[in-house]
């Protein structure tokens, strides 16, 4: 297997040029998918026989909750890559991704709370999954806070990477501890192993929503990374030609 893609990915120049091609289609496809998925889910999918129309918030809640966790996993991997291989793009990725992950966790919390009011009769319960998303949100805020607190860029990058790695190692433990501590939440909607219990017309739009959320976040993070590259590499000559070539 050739590792050249790995080294290419580490170069801001290569990434910048590659991402110019890929960010718009990925982002647009994501937006389109979200529109289709939510419209289908909100307007056309059948009502849940127990929860009624309330269940439709699932089309926002589940994708954001899945993304909140996936984003953190990606931060952990990026942190590890940075600490081990000193790859230049990794801290750029962390910087770009952390706020998106925080927003996803916040959406998951809010939508879950709105869902909880009619179904459980309360805005908030100290249930395992809610609590672990809350903790996840705090971990994201910690990463953002340390990046803003440290003025020295090299130090801020290292510190954020360390927190990401420590976080990703601890996340299963935190999750397990809260699950063990208390559980009230319904089991996971999707699992890789078995077919969902929901009818197809209900889970199809959900699947579309989840996939489009991934694409949407991918597009967004690539754009944010481009901005960060512009900020960091402003002295590089390739960037000048690139920017002048774009007529900016």
């Amino acid at each position: 297997m050739s590792w050249s893609w790995f080294h290419k990915l580490g170069s801001p120049k290569w990434f910048f040029q590659w991402s110019k091609k890929w960010a718009p289609p990925v982002f647009c496809l994501g937006v389109l998918g979200i529109v289709v998925g939510t419209a289908w889910g909100l307007a056309f999918a059948p009502k849940d026989y127990l929860q009624g129309n309330v269940f439709r918030i699932i089309y926002l809640h589940v994708p954001s909750a899945i993304l909140a966790e996936s984003c953190y996993l990606s931060l952990g991997i990026a942190g590890f890559v940075f600490l081990v291989w000193q790859m230049k793009m990794a801290p750029i990725f962390i910087k770009a991704m952390a706020p998106i992950g925080a927003v996803m966790a916040a959406i998951a919390l809010f939508s879950g709370s709105i869902w909880g009011k009619p179904t459980w009769g309360t805005w908030w319960v100290w249930d395992a999954r809610l609590t672990s998303v809350l903790v996840l949100f705090m971990l994201y805020m910690g990463i953002i806070a340390i990046q803003n607190a440290l003025d020295d860029r090299v130090l801020a990058d290292k510190a954020a990477a360390v927190i990401c790695v420590v976080g990703v190692i601890n996340l299963p433990i935190i999750k397990y501890s809260v699950v063990w501590w208390n559980t009230l939440h319904q089991p996971a909607t999707f699992s890789f192993m078995k077919k969902p219990d929901m009818p197809e017309v209900m889970w199809m739009p959900l699947l579309i929503c989840v996939v489009s959320f991934y694409l949407f976040v991918a597009g967004l993070v690539i754009w944010r990374m481009q901005t960060e590259i512009l900020r960091r590499e402003h002295r590089a000559s390739w960037l000048k030609t690139e920017v002048v070539g774009d007529g900016i």
Partner: peptide
């Protein structure tokens, strides 16, 4: 992480306390 900051206590609480949850639980 916070050694170079003059006022690091609050930030350290924010960063570290979530990792204490399992031990406390």
């Amino acid at each position: 992480l916070t050694v170079s900051l003059r006022q690091g206590a609050l930030l350290m609480l924010l960063l570290i306390l979530p990792f204490y949850f399992p031990i406390i639980i």
